[in-house]
C-alpha cells in the first residue's frame, strides 16, 4: 500500500513539474517580469537594475529553479493589473470558487447518479426517455446560455433570486469568507451552482447509465439472475456497486474540471471567485496570475485524482490486492 501511494505521489509530482515548467515558460518568456515592478516612465537605468535584481540575466535553469522554489512557497510574483502579490489575490477569491464548486459537485452527484441508475433500469419507461432527452439538451446547451436563461427566468422575470454576487458573506476563522451561513448567501448560491452543476450532472447521469447497462449485461449479473436473487438484490447490491466503481474515477475527473469550468459561471453571475480573476488576467494579459492559476488548478486536480485512486482501491478488492502485493 505504501509503495503504491509513494508511486502515485511521484507520478503526481511529475505532472506538476511539467505544468510548472509550462507556467515558468509563460511567466518568463511570454510575460515580462520587469513590468511587474516598473512603470512606463521608469528611467532605463532603473529598469536595468530591476532586471538584475530579479536575476533575469542568470542562466535560464537557475531562474527556473528559483521560480519553482518560490512557487512551492506559494510566491507566484506580483500581478500586473493589481500590483499585489498573486497569492493574496487568489486566496481572497478561493472561498467563493471552492464553495460554489463544492455545492455544484454535490448537486450533480446527488441528482446525476440516481437519474443514471433509473434510466438504466427502466430503459423503456417514459421518464427514462424524458431524462435521456433532457440530458442531451443539458450537454448541448453551453453553460453560459443556461446561466443567462436562469437569470432571465428567476431573477429578471420572477425576481425570486439574485442575479449576481455572493449575497451576504461572513468571515470564519479569520480568513475564510463563507456564504453558507447566511440566508442571502445561500440564496445567491442557488442559480450559480445549478448552472455549474447541470453540465456535470448530465454527464454523470449518462455515464452511470451507460456503465450500468454494460454491467447488467455482464456474466456475474446473469449468474446472479440464475441464482434466483431478487431483482432488488441484483440491481442494487450487485449491479449498482459494479457500476459505481469505475464511475468514481470519471466522476472525480469531472469534479476536478468543475473548478475550471467555474470561469464561465463566475463571469455570468459576477461571482467574485478565482475563475473570474483568471478571466480578467487572460483579458488583460496578466501573466503571473495565469501561470499561478494554471499551477493551482493542476495541483487541485492531481490531488483529487490521487484521492480518487485511493478510494478506488478501497472499494475494489481486486485492486486492493494488487496494491498490497
Amino acid at each position: 500500500m505504501l509503495a503504491f501511494i509513494i508511486r502515485r505521489i511521484l507520478q503526481s509530482c511529475m505532472v506538476l513539474l511539467t505544468v510548472a515548467l509550462l507556467a515558468f515558460t509563460m511567466f518568463r518568456f511570454v510575460g515580462d517580469p520587469v513590468a511587474q515592478i516598473v512603470s512606463l516612465d521608469t528611467p532605463a537605468e532603473e529598469v536595468r537594475k530591476v532586471r538584475e535584481s530579479l536575476g533575469l540575466d542568470d542562466p535560464v535553469i537557475v531562474q527556473m529553479g528559483r521560480y519553482l522554489y518560490k512557487a512551492v512557497q506559494l510566491d507566484f510574483g506580483i500581478s500586473y493589473q493589481f500590483r499585489q502579490p498573486v497569492i493574496e489575490l487568489l486566496a481572497e477569491r478561493a472561498p467563493a470558487t471552492l464553495e460554489l464548486a463544492l455545492i455544484s459537485s454535490l448537486l450533480s452527484l446527488a441528482i446525476g447518479i440516481p437519474m443514471g441508475v433509473y434510466t438504466a433500469l427502466r430503459r423503456d419507461s417514459v421518464f427514462a426517455r424524458v431524462f435521456q432527452s433532457i440530458s442531451l439538451v443539458g450537454v448541448s446547451l453551453p453553460t453560459f446560455l443556461i446561466g443567462i436563461l436562469l437569470i432571465y427566468l428567476f431573477a429578471v422575470t420572477l425576481g425570486w433570486l439574485p442575479s449576481f454576487g455572493r449575497g451576504q458573506v461572513v468571515t470564519v476563522s479569520g480568513r475564510w469568507s463563507t456564504g453558507l451561513l447566511t440566508a442571502s448567501g445561500l440564496k445567491a448560491l442557488i442559480l450559480p451552482s445549478i448552472t455549474l452543476g447541470l453540465y456535470q450532472m448530465t454527464l454523470i447521469m449518462r455515464l452511470v447509465r451507460a456503465e450500468m447497462l454494460e454491467v447488467l449485461r455482464s456474466d456475474h449479473i446473469k449468474f446472479a439472475r440464475a441464482r434466483g436473487l431478487t431483482t432488488r438484490a441484483i440491481h442494487f447490491r450487485h449491479a449498482l456497486k459494479s457500476t459505481l466503481v469505475p464511475v468514481i474515477t470519471i466522476a472525480g475527473l469531472q469534479l476536478g474540471s468543475i473548478i475550471a469550468f467555474a470561469v464561465i459561471t463566475e463571469t455570468v453571475f459576477q461571482w467574485p471567485g478565482m475563475g473570474a480573476l483568471f478571466l480578467k488576467a487572460v483579458q488583460n494579459v496578466d501573466i503571473p496570475i495565469m501561470a499561478a492559476y494554471l499551477m493551482i488548478i493542476s495541483a487541485l486536480f492531481v490531488t483529487i485524482n490521487m484521492v480518487v485512486d485511493l478510494l478506488y482501491a478501497f472499494v475494489d478488492p481486486r485492486l486492493r490486492a494488487t496494491i498490497k502485493g
Partner: peptide, 18 residues
C-alpha cells in the same frame, strides 16, 4: 487531460495575446 478544454483555450488565447 487534467485541464478542461475551455481552460486550455483561454490559456492559448492569453499567451497569443501577450
Amino acid at each position: 487531460l487534467t485541464f478542461p478544454a475551455i481552460l486550455i483555450a483561454l490559456l492559448v488565447n492569453g499567451v497569443v495575446q501577450a
